[in-house]
């Protein structure tokens, strides 16, 4: 099932299919290891519901829901 990373709930796991968006932000998302095929676990939401904390490639990354919305995932 396809789903945006921003729509994931706590503890949900998936594999990156593709990344939309453009420019430097997209580039940064790639650089941080969020590329097609990477497995991502949504660990938690910040106290105010945004940003989110994910585990990707063995480390913890935080990004906002608006940025996570660029990442299309296949739910595991």
């Amino acid at each position: 099932m396809e789903k945006k990373l921003s729509e994931f709930s706590r503890g949900e796991r998936g594999v990156v299919l593709r990344i939309e968006g453009e420019g430097r932000v997209r580039r940064r998302i790639f650089d941080m290891g969020v590329t097609p095929g990477a497995e991502i676990l949504l660990r938690k939401l910040a106290p105010l519901g945004d940003p989110v904390e994910v585990t990707v490639r063995g480390y913890e990354l935080t990004l906002r829901k608006s940025e996570a919305a660029c990442v299309t995932m296949e739910v595991l």
């Binding site: 932000v25 940064r28 998302i29 941080m32 940003p51 904390e53 480390y59 913890e60 990354l61 935080t62 990004l63 906002r64 940025e67």
Partner: peptide
């Protein structure tokens, strides 16, 4: 500005 950042252990 965007917020994409590592959370170190």
């Amino acid at each position: 500005a965007p917020f994409i950042m590592e959370l170190p252990a």
